[in-house]
Simulated assay, not measured.
Amino acid sequence: MTYQQLMGLANGYADSKVLLVANELGVFTAIGTGGHRVNALAAACGTTHEGMRLLLHALAGLGLLRRQAGRYWNTPLGLRFLDGHSPLAITNLLWLLNHHWSDWTGMARAIRRGRPGWATVTKTAEFRRRFALAMQERSHVLAPPTIASFRLPRNATRFLDLGGGAGSYSIALARQYPTLQGLVIDQSVAVARRLTRQQGLADRLKVRTGNLFTLPLATGFDVALLSNVLHDFSEKENLRLLRRVYQSLRPGGKLFIVEYFLNPAGIRPAEAAIFSLLMYAFTDTGRCYAWKETEGWLATAGFSRCRRHRITGTIGTLEAVKR
């Protein structure tokens, strides 16, 4: 790493915060498909004229807005992902990343004194609703290639999505395999219920509120899915969860785990190692785990024939079969 790269890394938070603040204020949505002047956007977003002018200059400088004849316009990228009216908007995902700012701000204290645990706000209905929406928005890009990597058992008809959040992967799976019926379980399922209805899948996808570790599970499922769940929990908790999943599957049934998987040293990919540190401050016991660690738990729980598949540079799927 060069000195210039070092300074770019040190100051990278500023570029990020410009984007996150603009999203928080609703700037991209206020601009929409038109072009607007500073005073109109300041009024629409409830800001001062000076503050909005400087923010718009920064956004234009970063290439996130286009300025022409004193008016500011969304770029094609902004119209697609930043305007809240777009079906592909990631406004809730950016809201979540902005929420994590407090986790990073308190990181030094957490490292010195220990994990702060789940913040009280994360247990509120509104936080859980927006968190689920953030995960749904994140799935726009990730769900299709992830589902495409799955090799389902022959004649599969039933699947379990444990900790399924907004039901994004269940919806993608049901659309890919028209004969499948699924059950989504999470602590908050309001968003999942709404999305399954919107997609016309309410007759094939059922949603149920419950604790992943204590809710009684049916048996005989052909497929089980754990998507971005393991990084919320400790090694001991994850082994307990995998044993529950094992009992819910039929012999020959398959489990698919979607995660930020690390190399054996725990340092690559860098994004996964950084996310693991964030989980230290955000959760009670969670972090990211190596492929090999997870395969060890699977073997202990009774699974066999593990198969790795890389989806992106940081996200992968791990497939295992119930003996």
Rank of each mutant, 00 (worst) to 15 (best):
F303W: 01
R287M: 10
A290C: 08
G316Y: 01
E295D: 07
W297S: 05
K322S: 03
E295F: 14
K292G: 11
W297H: 13
T312P: 06
T317Q: 11
T312S: 07
R307S: 13
S304C: 10
T312A: 11
S304Q: 14
I311V: 15
V321M: 09
Y289Q: 02
I311K: 00
Y289K: 04
A290H: 04
G313C: 06
I311D: 00
L298C: 09
E319I: 14
A320L: 05
L298S: 00
R305M: 11
W297I: 15
R308Q: 14
R305S: 10
T285W: 05
G296A: 10
T285G: 09
A299F: 11
A290K: 01
G286D: 08
A299Q: 05
G302C: 09
G296D: 02
E319P: 15
S304E: 07
R305H: 15
H309Y: 12
T300E: 15
R307K: 04
G313L: 02
L318Q: 07
A290V: 00
E319G: 06
R310I: 03
H309N: 15
R307A: 03
R287K: 04
I311C: 02
R287H: 13
I315Q: 03
A301H: 09
Y289I: 09
T317L: 07
G316V: 05
C288F: 10
I311Q: 02
G302K: 01
G313I: 07
T294N: 07
L298D: 04
G313H: 04
T285N: 13
R307N: 05
T300C: 00
C306P: 14
T300D: 11
E293N: 01
R308W: 14
G286R: 08
C288S: 11
C306Q: 14
C306L: 02
E295K: 02
R307H: 15
W297L: 14
L318I: 10
A301V: 04
